[in-house]
């Protein structure tokens, strides 16, 4: 029914997770596994690229909450970038911009990581 996929990219500044499709209660586990894998590999500077993410449900949002504490304790951060308007709206309604760096482009997130700024 709903399709979702995550692919990894590693840049000098961060580990980039490109999400595409629909992130809901059924596909949330895929993202969990992906983030867990990044953390196991010692990568704590994560950029979530939502350019191809069409939909996110509250269970999908919960995935970020599940990991953010551990990531920040390890000196890293999750930065969420390039969200489509309707997905941004879901983030915004929940108040996620209060908790996460939600940025327009990957480059801005990378620049922030390079500058050593982990939390905004």
């Amino acid at each position: 029914m709903s399709s979702f996929s995550v692919t990894f990219r590693t840049t000098p500044a961060a580990q980039i997770l490109d999400l595409s499709g629909e992130l809901d209660a059924h596909t949330a586990q895929d993202l969990e596994v992906a983030i867990q894998t990044s953390l196991s590999n010692g990568k704590f500077a994560l950029v979530i690229n939502g350019a191809n993410l069409r939909y996110i449900s509250s269970a999908g949002l919960g995935v970020f909450m599940a990991f953010v504490e551990e990531i920040r304790e390890n000196g890293g951060d999750i930065k969420i970038v390039a969200l489509q308007p309707q997905v941004y709206d879901t983030f915004d309604l929940l108040g996620f911009p209060h908790l996460f760096d939600v940025l327009p482009t990957i480059e801005e997130a990378e620049a922030k990581f390079m500058a050593g700024e982990l939390r905004h």
Partner: peptide
Amino acid sequence: KEKNIFIT
């Protein structure tokens, strides 16, 4: 509370 659970 489990970390990934929240209530709106």
